[in-house]
Write a protein that binds this DNA or RNA. Structure first.
Ligand code: SF4
Ligand code: SF4
Lengths: 145, 145
DNA sequence: TTCTTTTGCGACTAAATACTCTTAAATCTT
DNA sequence: AAGATTTAAGAGTATTTAGTCGCAAAAGAA
């Protein structure tokens, strides 16, 4: 039951790392994040480019450049990141792969799935990077499942 | 948010089709199912082989051979099929991809995920092929999302 | 200006998933 | 026995996802 792609998980872990560095001023380089979290530099770079284009991050080139959150970590939610990295339709998918997921002739799991999806969406909407950063330790960010 | 692989969804649709044919005696050929549901014959075949090996289906070769449910559709649950086709660890995966998912220093979504997973698992455990077959029409089985 | 640092971006490679094809084995029909 | 039907099995291909590489562009430092 893989919910998120690798790229999304990497991006998320990286953003949480950023959130834990809030006392530092200026930019954090992708190289540092890649090294600290043991994630491929170039792979991370692509993910960050997307997040920069979508306004989650601000980037700056050159010495002592890097990336930085564009908003306080309290105002960036899992929901925003996942929608960007997994696509807008992420929370609208059907469970069994039949078409519609409308209310017309639903299969037995339809209503359940509707509720489950809504719950997941809500959880993602209320969980901020700051919250994740506060609870997740450095050690746990570094290791990957 | 793709939950199940294509192979699993195909298998599920095919099994539901089988469940709707319970008045027919004997075996239903893979060719017929493949044609009726517009699923690749050989791909389906592989999935069915797995289900046969694991005791969900009974198969028989030769003219008027095919496959048949090994138990009444009322006694076959989504849970059984998904565990076979997606692997035993399907319901034990972590949401954010960090290790452990133990109760030691959980991240903010850990508890939520634990509950959500349990709910999904339970739903799959109580939903039988018969139930799915009773609610899903032929038309909806045929089309894929 | 020239060199270094760092992101941006596109092409390339590898691995996993999804799908196809061929042949063998079992079973029935004639 | 010979041929037809149907599943079993494994190899082969295509598409998607994951990860790598190289160089251009921006910006600071010497
Ligand atoms: S009714 Fe069931 S199979 Fe159909 S779209 Fe909804 S969840 Fe999917
Ligand atoms: S605490 Fe969060 S990130 Fe860690 S294993 Fe549990 S759900 Fe995954």
């Amino acid at each position: 039951m893989k919910v998120l792609s690798k790229g999304t998980v990497y991006g998320l872990r990286a953003l949480v790392y950023l959130a834990t560095q809030k006392d530092r001023t200026g930019y954090v380089s992708i190289g540092e994040i890649s090294e600290k979290l043991d994630i491929s530099f170039h792979f991370l770079t692509k993910t960050f480019q997307m997040l920069t284009q979508k306004g989650i991050l601000e980037s700056y080139r050159g010495p002592s450049g890097g990336i930085a959150l564009n908003k306080p970590a309290e105002q960036i939610f899992l929901f925003d990141i996942v929608k960007i990295l997994e696509g807008d339709d992420f929370f609208d998918k059907c469970l069994l792969g039949l078409p519609g997921c409308g209310d017309f002739e639903p299969c037995p799991v339809h209503d359940f799935w509707k509720v489950a999806k809504a719950a997941l969406k809500n959880e993602f909407e209320i969980t901020s990077l700051a919250e994740l950063g506060a609870k997740v330790t450095d050690e746990r960010l570094r290791l990957s499942a």
